[in-house]
Every structure is written in structure tokens, then in C-alpha cells.
Amino acid sequence: MIGLLKADFLKLRKRWLYWVLLAVLATLMGLAAVFLIVIPSVNPDLIPDIPTFETGDAMLLGAQQAVGQTWFPLILAVVFLGGEVTTPIWATAVTQEARRWMHLVSKLVICSVAAWAGTMAAMGGWALLAALFTEGEGIGAGTWFEFAWKAALTQVTWTALGLGAMALMRNMGIAIGTVLAFSFFEGIGSLWDVYANVSLTGASTALFGNLGAEFAGGFGFGGADAMSITQAVIVVMGWAVLGLGLAITGLAVKDP
């Protein structure tokens, strides 16, 4: 297992994929931070509807924004697995280590850690801008620790769903389209009361609080208002198990 983790880490490090996704994430998060933090601080009249945040709230908003970039773990997982299962690389890999579940776990670990690291870096960058451009107290180490494990939980889950989609579909374009559509409609679905209690987006939002609703006229994700942290954790983990189940099924059915 350690060997597979080393191999996957080497592949992640040496290929363009992760670094390009990280650059896109940094760009999107940077633009959002400028729009929501920097401009209201430097020239509040430029965008009058945006509230001015205190530093702590601004940092929380950054954490929510970073975790909300679900495309990042999804595309990373799909392309990382897809780059192998759609090429002769997969046949070679499973003739070197035949147990497919080990390949899957290795990819889940590496992609999740990479997605988590990117997300935490994005949160950190945002927090730096918040510290520079807003007034008030920042957040303490305990809250950062909380952000870290909550972010890890959500990144593992979105990664597992990405791997599941790719293992089943065996076509990167279709799998990327499907997971992005899923992420979008799942978010919309979380507004529906019946579904809100099991919504992944709702649970993610509940984990980090629904600060965004305060400046969006109370319009928040349904589950966020109703779910306790414990329930949110259970819901997120349930989705992770579903994603892994799909991935294992996909590899078993398509690659006996």
C-alpha cells in the first residue's frame, strides 16, 4: 500500500493536472476575495450591496468559499483515475498489483490529501487578505483546526464521488460533465425540504455555517438551517461510502 501511495504521489506531483487545477482555484478564490473583501474595504461605494465583514467572519466566508469549490476534488479525482483506466496504463498497473481496491484506496488518499491541501491553501490565502483588508479579531487555532478536519471530510467525499463516476463511466468527458451536473443540481436539491436532510451540499454548508445567507437575503441551503454538526458529519460520510461503493462496483463490473 505504501508503494502505491508513493507511486500515485509521484504521478500527482509530476503531472500538470494538479498544478493547473490549483492555479484555477487560486484565480477563482482570488477574484472572489477581491470582490467580497478587498473592494468593500478599499472602496465600499464601488459595490454598495456587499456588506463589510469583520475579520473573523471574512475568514469564515473564505472557508465556505474554498469548500464550495466542489469542482476541484471532483475533476482531480476523475482525471487522475481516468488518465489510467482509459489507457493501457491501467492494465499495466493491475498486472503489477492485482488488488483493484488497493489502487482505489491509494488514489482516494492521494487525491483527497491533494484537494484538502489546495483547499486549505485557498483558505489561507483568503485569510491573509481578510487580515490585511478587514477590521476586527481573526479566528483562533481551534477554529482553524475545525476548518481543517471539516474540509478533509468534504474533500474525501467529493473525491470518492469523482472516483465512483469515473470507474463506472470510463469516459473522462462524460464523467466530468456528470459530476459537475451532479454537484450543481445536488446544491439546488438541498433547497427542497424533503431532500435537505440528506443533501451533501446542505451538510457541507451546515459544517461551516451559512454565513453567505446573511448577505443573500436569508437565501441559504435548506439543510444548513436544520442539520446538527453530528448529522452533517454522518450525511457527508454516507455520501463518501456511496462514492466508494460506486467506484468499487465500477471496477468490478467494467474490469473483472
Binding site: 507511486a7 509521484l10 503531472r15 489507457t87 493501457p88 499495466t92 498486472t95 503489477q96
Partner: peptide, 27 residues
């Protein structure tokens, strides 16, 4: 050791890195 159908190599990695990936995979 096997080559089945086409060689399964990472085209964006160097020859040495490809062998390193395989060495890690097989331990």
C-alpha cells in the same frame, strides 16, 4: 512481468519516472 497489448506508460513522465512509478507500485 507483462506487457499486454500496448505498453502502459505515462507519456508525460520521463523514462526514469515511469520505472520509479512501477518500482513503487510493485514495492
Amino acid at each position: 512481468g507483462a506487457i499486454i497489448e500496448e505498453p502502459g506508460l505515462h507519456k508525460t513522465l520521463t523514462a526514469r519516472d515511469n520505472l520509479q512509478v512501477s518500482a513503487d507500485t510493485i514495492g
